[in-house]
Write a protein that binds this DNA or RNA. Structure first.
Lengths: 162, 162
DNA sequence: ATAAATTAAATCGTGCACGATTTAATTGCT
DNA sequence: AGCAATTAAATCGTGCACGATTTAATTTAT
């Protein structure tokens, strides 16, 4: 044992390699996700949106009207998260919520004229942020490819343990 | 215009490519991060930990004692998130919090014997989850490499807009 | 020496996430 | 028809995240 004066020597010395933050895949994933959300914020603030609200709107812009569950499948969120989020979007006049008369259990979410109009405001956001983050196109595509390949296995694993 | 009966035809038709969820890098990042956290939960539940608490403990296992700010730099979290989290870890008897007598502004976080002992319980978690998610080693390494390369640019961009 | 600037935590308010439960509507089964 | 099982949202409770502000201690520049 070297005559180190570092009081944490004993702790660091016995730290198993696989538990070091630097060796974990989960941490950069967690950090990158939060950083990207923070990068979106200034753009979304101007529109009065949060990042999860923006995700839900992107889903609706693509396929509205949708039920809460259908949005949930696409966003991987369930009603405990979506119901209050959708109520906030409704309060902002961006979506409307109405029970499906054919099946009263369902709530159908539609875009209002205002909600649809917001799409135009958002068109430039991805490109702006892409440049702001100084992303390399090839690396970004490769990253997306790997993440898309990872997701099905993760979903299966999460279901399996539930 | 085709004689589609899809009532959403008009909406989907005009959806700009760059706003489709499928074409965004941010969404798989957001989804993967949440899925990984959910995958950790069953393992961490047994120990009474949340994923962010586990991250903070990994940091402490590597370099305790640390101030709140030092933990924050490593975890990319600040006192508004860390203070309550650390109080919960303290309430569980895993860490101790004490003002630095040399600089009363600082709060030094140390591991208790119990907090240090928990490390042993966690050694197998990364390997277990890696297998549970059916991760391919090469892809995982490549993914980690890309994410690690992405983080500095994201951090710079987030600072720049603040 | 002291006032201004800086730094470190804590506090506050809002909005996710998500496990668990509840409520209500529909479907399936006899 | 009628009752059990299923499904869809909503509700509840806890714990992050994070912008903004506050409090208090230290540093700096007069």
């Amino acid at each position: 044992m070297p005559d180190s004066v570092d009081p944490d020597f004993a702790v660091a010395e016995s730290m198993p390699e696989q538990l070091r933050l630097q060796n974990q895949l989960c941490f950069p994933l967690y950090a990158a996700s939060r950083l990207v959300t923070r990068l979106y914020q200034p753009q979304l603030d101007r529109l009065g949106l949060t990042y999860p609200q923006y995700v839900v709107l992107m889903i609706l812009w693509e396929s509205a009207p949708l039920t809460v569950n259908e949005i949930g499948q696409r966003a991987m969120l369930s009603s405990n998260t979506l119901t209050p989020l959708l109520k906030r979007l409704e309060a902002q006049g961006l979506v409307s919520r109405q029970r499906d008369s054919a099946d009263e259990r369902r709530v159908v979410i539609s875009l209002t004229e205002q909600g649809l109009a917001l799409r135009g405001e958002c068109e430039c956001i991805p490109q702006t942020l892409f440049e702001q983050a100084g992303l390399n196109v090839e690396e970004a595509l490769e990253l997306k490819r790997l993440l898309d390949a990872l997701l099905p296995g993760l979903e299966r694993a999460v279901e399996g343990t539930a």
